[in-house]
């Protein structure tokens, strides 16, 4: 399956991926200004840029093949889609027990602050309205679309033998 891969060597830590991710998952997915200034709670990104001096890269859910979060989920809200491979959290079933947060080996799941007591994680923008018209960008997550330096790539596995 296609995942988002970070290229540390050209990630400049600007965090525009975070800005666009947060917006895309906010109440105003197409409007940065409204998402950040009008929404009561500041929108939270589901991608996080790790940053230390000149080292920087963006991290988000790896959509593991054997995803520990799906096994740990007590309500069955966290599911890996057998077709797309996307690990997503069904917010209607999520009770906010945070077990997934505990077991995630990447620390890629966070607590949502939108008023729901649910887990918040990267959904590869599968639930986000497509922001662009161009074909080449359709279904490409907004973090990848908006990275100014091609430090994020949406592609099939880079590791040989994986899948």
């Amino acid at each position: 399956m296609k995942r988002v891969y970070a290229r540390e060597e050209v990630c400049m830590g600007c965090k525009l991926c975070e800005v666009y991710c947060a917006t895309a998952h906010s109440e105003y997915p197409l409007d940065l200004v409204k998402a950040f200034l009008k929404q009561k709670m500041k929108p939270l990104p589901r991608i996080l840029v790790e940053y230390n001096l000149s080292i920087s890269f963006a991290l988000q859910c790896r959509h593991c093949d054997e995803a520990p979060c799906t096994k740990a989920c007590i309500t069955g809200a966290m599911q890996k889609d057998s077709v797309t491979g996307i690990v997503s959290n069904d917010e209607r079933r999520c009770v906010g027990c945070w077990t997934c947060i505990l077991v995630c080996p990447f620390g890629a799941i966070g607590r949502d602050n939108q008023g729901h007591k649910v887990a918040s994680k990267c959904d590869l923008c599968s639930n986000v309205a497509d922001q662009t018209d161009t074909e080449s960008f359709s279904n490409v997550p907004v973090c990848v679309q908006n990275c100014p330096n091609r430090a994020l790539q949406f592609m099939d596995s880079v590791v040989e033998g994986e899948e």
Partner: peptide, 12 residues
């Protein structure tokens, strides 16, 4: 009115 305090400018 447009600044969302994302601090991209600060970091850049």
């Amino acid at each position: 009115e447009r600044c969302i305090n994302c601090q991209v400018c600060v970091r850049q």
